[in-house]
């Protein structure tokens, strides 16, 4: 499986956000897109997931049909009145509650397990979303600033959790945080 972006451009209101971006993404590999904020990292991730169209250029998926993305968006997208386990379960129907719990406990404290998502701190909600994406039966993990809102200790923990669980997938993230770059291909948007 491979994702090939060739000469992708995107403008908003006449302002070029992405100008001629080309890159191949291979399975079992990690890619971290760096660059100042507002440079178009989020837009690029959305174009890859098919949530936005590019103005010109192409995005092709090779050697795969019906590709499945597992996203972590820039802002929290959890069902606010459900707890962490139920939120992860909605995206992972095949998994048992105890399996999900076990996985969540790797990166969030036990005291947070039974709280509603709306009661979780930003950093904890983020980690729940990361587990939801990592566990899901997917081909591509896409994470927009996955380490934002995490202190150094947790950022280390989460970064290695993600890297250990890429498996056969393609992992593409945008990040300001250098931790994710270890072992990843670093792409700089300009």
């Amino acid at each position: 499986m491979r994702i090939v972006l060739s000469d992708v451009t995107k403008s908003y209101d006449g302002r070029v956000v992405i100008g001629g971006f080309s890159q191949e993404f291979e399975e079992r590999s990690a890619y971290v897109i760096e660059g100042a904020s507002g440079i178009g990292k989020t837009t690029l991730l959305r174009i890859i997931m098919g949530l936005e169209d590019c103005d010109s250029g192409t995005v092709t998926f090779e050697e795969i049909q019906n590709i499945r993305f597992a996203p972590v968006f820039q802002e929290t997208r959890l069902i606010p009145y459900l707890d962490a386990v139920s939120n992860v379960k909605l995206a992972n129907n095949g998994l048992s509650g105890s399996r999900i719990k076990e996985e969540l406990l790797k990166i969030i404290p036990a005291s947070e397990l039974n709280k509603k998502a709306s009661e979780l701190s930003g950093g904890t909600a983020r980690r729940v979303e990361i587990v939801r994406a990592v566990l899901s039966d997917s081909d591509v993990l896409i994470m927009d600033e996955p380490l934002s809102g995490l202190d150094d200790k947790n950022a280390d923990l989460v970064a290695s959790y993600i890297m250990d669980n890429i498996k056969d997938r393609i992992f593409i993230a945008s990040s300001h945080n250098k931790r994710l770059c270890t072992g990843a291909h670093s792409l700089v948007l300009q």
């Binding site: 949530l51 499945r68 993305f69 996203p71 968006f73 997208r77 069902i79 909605l90 995206a91 939801r132």
Partner: peptide
């Protein structure tokens, strides 16, 4: 819309 995007990408069941 953001929640719809999320649910679609994760392929939530219709019921959910």
């Amino acid at each position: 819309r953001k929640m719809i995007e999320m649910a679609d990408l994760f392929r939530f069941r219709f019921k959910d």
